[in-house]
Each structure stands twice: as structure tokens, then as C-alpha cells.
């Protein structure tokens, strides 16, 4: 597999949100606006790249029986690192995303990539895999946030596009499920057409 395709596969063929349907909690919970979705995506990408690299480096040293607990400890450490850095330098984003930042620990995408990719590949490829999947996740979350913000608040990236009030339901909980459902159908249709 070429290096480039390791990155691109995460965006379309193995898109974590629309194809693999992983990490649904932050996908639904944080996409009330495009900027929040993007922030969540980038935060997850940060953890994903670092944990992928470290796990690919130590995979040979850890006995099979304690593999999963060790991975969880490593991932949890990077999440805590992210929490401390965000509190120091991006406090308002940290507050907005709230509970979903510590919950990156239990995001199936991160542990999933450690198991499926990082423990069998070298550090460089694992980093690229982290970047690819992370970008795919970030892109999906940004798009969902964009659609919800536009329909619910008539704005894009906090800039008002139309005057007046949008259909508020899209910013609230039901809109999260419904927008994601329809976007998934759209994604299926588009990828079918591309084949």
C-alpha cells in the first residue's frame, strides 16, 4: 500500500463516521456548529496520531495478555495531556466540548486503530494512518456541524448567512440523529456513483 493511500483511505473508503460508523457519541454530541465539530475532530486526531505512533513503537515489548489495558493506559495519558494543554491554551473550546474530551479515551476509533493498524505497522505508517483517519473524522464532523448550524441557526462558522431564526430542532438533539442519518445516505449514494 502506498504511503499516500494510507492517508486517503481514511477520508472515503474507510471513513470512520459514514462507513465504519465509529465514535458516534462525539459525532452527535459536539456538532452543534461547524467550529465545534472541527475542534472535536482535531482533538481526536491529536490523540490518534500520538497513540498510534507510541503503540507502534512499543507493540513488540508488551505481552499479548496485557495488550489492551496497556493501550488504554497509553491512550488515556495522551487524552490527559490534551486536556491539560487545552485548559492552558484553548480554555473556551475546552469548556464547549466539555465531557467529550475525556471521553476520547473510550472512542472506539482510537483503540480500533491501535488494534487494527498500529500494532502491526511501523511508526511512520502508523502516524500517516492516524493523520488519514483523523482527517476523515474531522471532515465528517465539520460537515455535520456545518449542515446543523446552517439549518438550525442560518449561519456558517458563526457568520450569519440569512437573517431570522432557523429550524432550531437541527441544533437540538433530534437534529443530530436526523442530519447524520441523511448525510450517511448521501455519502452512500455518492460513493456508489464514483465506483
Amino acid at each position: 500500500m502506498s504511503r499516500l493511500s494510507i492517508i486517503t483511505k481514511g477520508i472515503i473508503k474507510e471513513n470512520p463516521t459514514f462507513v465504519l460508523v465509529l465514535g458516534m457519541c462525539p459525532t452527535l454530541g459536539t456538532t452543534t456548529s461547524a467550529i465545534n465539530g472541527m475542534g472535536m475532530g482535531l482533538a481526536t486526531t491529536f490523540v490518534l496520531i500520538l497513540s498510534n505512533v507510541v503503540i507502534s513503537l512499543v507493540a513488540g515489548l508488551i505481552p499479548a495478555k496485557v495488550r489492551i489495558p496497556s493501550y488504554i493506559v497509553i491512550i488515556a495519558s495522551f487524552v490527559t495531556l490534551l486536556q491539560l494543554l487545552m485548559q492552558a491554551f484553548l480554555p473556551s473550546l475546552y469548556e464547549t466540548l466539555g465531557l467529550f474530551i475525556p471521553l476520547i479515551v473510550v472512542n472506539c476509533i482510537v483503540l480500533g486503530r491501535a488494534e487494527a493498524f498500529a500494532n502491526k505497522n511501523n511508526a511512520l505508517d502508523s502516524a500517516l494512518d492516524g493523520i488519514g483517519i483523523g482527517l476523515g473524522f474531522t471532515l465528517s464532523l465539520t460537515i455535520i456541524g456545518l449542515v446543523r448550524e446552517l439549518l438550525g441557526n442560518l449561519s456558517i462558522f458563526d457568520m450569519k448567512i440569512f437573517n431570522g431564526d432557523g429550524a432550531l430542532a437541527f441544533v437540538l438533539a433530534p437534529g443530530a440523529f436526523i442530519v447524520l442519518g441523511y448525510l450517511m445516505v448521501l455519502f452512500r449514494k455518492l460513493t456508489e456513483r464514483m465506483k
Binding site: P69, S70, V73, I74, Q87, A88, F89
Partner: peptide, 28 residues
Amino acid sequence: CLGIVTIVCAALLGAVNILTADAIAQAA
């Protein structure tokens, strides 16, 4: 082995915590 992983991680986090403590207080 699991113990070593945990201790290394905890030590690193302790260090980062000391480094960021000032910045977090300043941000507040």
C-alpha cells in the same frame, strides 16, 4: 509490564501537569 507502562505514563503526566499549571491559572 503493565505496571511499568502505568508508572511511565503517570510520571510523564505529572511533569506535563507542572509545566501547564501556570498557563492554566493564567488562562483563568
